[in-house]
């Protein structure tokens, strides 16, 4: 089967001041596949994820070395518009973070800031995004109510819908289910599997069963280094390195 590399990094280093948080990380992300990043807390997986849409730029005193590419564009090239990049590479956060606006306005926000003025079109995309995120039936009668009134799981699916509205090519997810109960988590997981037919998804998770359930490929991080990356089935059943095996069998981490 033909595979296209949607995004990749090569020898990526990342520094907070003098502290090196990532060391020579190289991963290829295949188009329309789910890649999970796993590893113990503080291993750099979230930092790595936030390098991919340059969310780390918000922190003072950081430095990036090496290559990070989206298709054929170096995303750290000075000529790259970071605002456009973030529209192409969307993000869903650990805790649901809807704006204190109505459900409708939350989804429409990304469209409006990107210059869309056609009301009918906005309405159409809002509905489509909510349907894609499998939350349309739950909120279609309360589009004008505050998004803060939704349950935690609904809020997170709303945030996914919000990210989908601007039609990103890649979706980054930073432990999107860690603040949710098991039922809400299951819904999010189903959603991720469904979305992966049209979208490249990169997801950070601390839950290995989750990684095994939803991802096509898995990358294992430890102490700022990429230890191993492979097809999920292979990585979990026949890891190449002892370190990986120790982690996935629960001997440390």
């Amino acid at each position: 089967m033909q595979t296209h590399i949607k995004m990749h990094t090569k020898n990526l280093d990342f520094f907070y001041g003098d502290f090196q948080a990532l060391d020579q990380v190289s991963i290829d992300f295949i188009e329309n596949r789910v890649t999970a990043l796993i590893g113990p807390s503080g291993c750099g997986k979230s930092t790595y994820l936030r390098c991919l849409n340059r969310m780390n730029d918000l922190i003072a005193g950081i430095r990036v070395k090496g290559l990070a590419m989206l298709d054929n564009d170096d995303i750290y090239d000075p000529s790259i518009d970071v605002v456009t990049l973030r529209r192409q590479v969307g993000m869903v956060f650990q805790k649901p973070n809807p704006f204190p606006k109505s459900v409708f306005e939350n989804i429409a926000y990304g469209l409006k800031v990107n210059g869309m003025k056609d009301k009918a079109k906005i309405t159409r995309i809002v509905e489509k995004s909510l349907k894609q995120a499998a939350i349309w039936d739950e909120v279609k009668d309360r589009l004008n109510e505050s998004a803060l009134g939704l349950s935690g799981g609904q809020q997170q699916r709303l945030c996914i819908a919000r990210a989908l509205a601007v039609a990103p090519e890649v979706l980054l997810m930073d432990e999107p289910a860690s603040a949710l109960d098991p039922i809400a988590t299951q819904k999010i997981e189903e959603l991720i599997t469904e979305l992966s037919s049209k979208l490249t998804i990169i997801i950070v998770t601390h839950n290995m069963q989750q990684a095994a359930r939803i991802s096509d490929r898995t990358a294992f991080f430890y102490m700022g280094k990429l230890i191993e990356v492979n097809d999920t089935d292979t990585l979990f059943t026949k890891p190449e390195l002892k370190q990986t095996e120790d982690y996935i069998t629960g001997r440390f981490g």
Partner: peptide
């Protein structure tokens, strides 16, 4: 104003000024 609001807005491709004007200031 929670930082997550700013991050969410920026992650959707809003510019910094749009984020301040449309999300941060209203809150």
């Amino acid at each position: 104003v929670p930082n997550t609001y700013r991050e969410a807005s920026l992650a959707m491709g809003a510019s910094k000024w749009q984020t301040i004007r449309k999300v941060v200031l209203p809150v």
